[in-house]
Simulated assay, not measured.
Amino acid sequence: MGMQLGYTMMTEQAGPKELVAYVTAAERAGFDFAVSSDHFSPWLDEQGHSPNAWVTLGAAAQATSRIGLMTYVTCPSFRYHPAVVAQQAATLQILADGRFTLGLGAGENLNEHVVGGGWPPADVRHEMLVEALHIIRDLFDGDGYTNFRGEHFDVESAKLWDLPDTRVPIGLAVSGKQSCEIAGELADAMIAVEPRSELGELFDAAGGTGKPRVGQMPISFDPDRTAATKRAHEQFRWFGLGWKVNAELPGTSAFDAASQFVREDDVAESIPCGDDVDAVIEAAREYADAGFTHLALVQIGGDQQHPFIEWSERTLLPAWREAFGG
């Protein structure tokens, strides 16, 4: 099978009813899987939304029947206790009849600071993530009651009473050596937003050989390339800051300030804008060449999803199958 094409339910740019309608349309159009962001806040005020991802995914599981579903990604160590994440994931897997993958990551200050407690440095966040992974995996095992005493989390006699027939696979977001080692040892899939082959190599070295690699790439489809570029700059100018920056900034005003000198031309150089299918395929090929097995596209603009999905069914999907198989 070639690299699978995914659709992104971007909670930062649409409300819950719209997101369910979009993923239903994406399934009809032929997308292989769908991922959902899990945020408390949009990146920029211009995006304007942030409904609860888990409620929306539950509705999506009922509204669809074939397309794979995935969190991209949930942080199981601040807004949510890992035991609660495990329960949510198990329940969603039952509703989805085995189509769900739990994508996890170390989180961003933007979404996690809302519950108080400060924002610890990256090494502490990784320690918390490892503890959370052990708790979630143990609860998924379903072997009696889980008790856990950690540096960051405690679990007292926890048990998931409704476990799915298909164990929930866990994907882990990676960006460097430490996270790749954690993912290779404790996850069933690697998640990344950059087409860097070294991430896959580090993942393999830690035990990830043969496991899926799931990427994500923004595009701004529009027959009017000028309008596409303007929209990408308005809503996605923060994207090029890099995850070491994006993980630390606390709110939309900080992202606005950090990206104030990003020009429309800068965005157009890094994000395919317009309706040139070859440009999308060329950008996606970097992920295929880096060993990614799945790539979810983000169509920028909450009101541009149906035109994008229709164009994908008519133009992108045939070109994608020819380029990447599947």
Rank of each mutant, 00 (worst) to 15 (best):
A60D: 13
P82H: 06
P223D: 11
G291L: 04
F78S: 13
T91P: 04
Q235A: 11
W119Y: 10
I309Y: 04
A53D: 04
L69V: 09
G107P: 04
H306K: 15
V23I: 09
E181L: 10
G200C: 01
L5N: 03
I309S: 09
K211I: 02
A228L: 02
R99E: 01
E282I: 02
A187R: 06
G58F: 03
R137V: 01
L317E: 08
T8L: 15
Y72F: 15
Q93A: 13
A206N: 04
S157H: 15
H233Q: 10
A173N: 03
V277P: 07
L95D: 05
H152N: 10
E131A: 02
I182W: 08
T226M: 07
P42K: 10
C180R: 09
D278G: 08
A132P: 05
A61V: 00
V174G: 01
D97A: 14
H39P: 06
V193L: 14
W161T: 09
A205F: 05
T209H: 14
K211M: 09
V214I: 15
I300E: 14
G207N: 08
Q87N: 14
L19T: 00
T101M: 15
E112N: 10
E181R: 15
D276K: 10
R137I: 04
Y7A: 05
F140T: 05
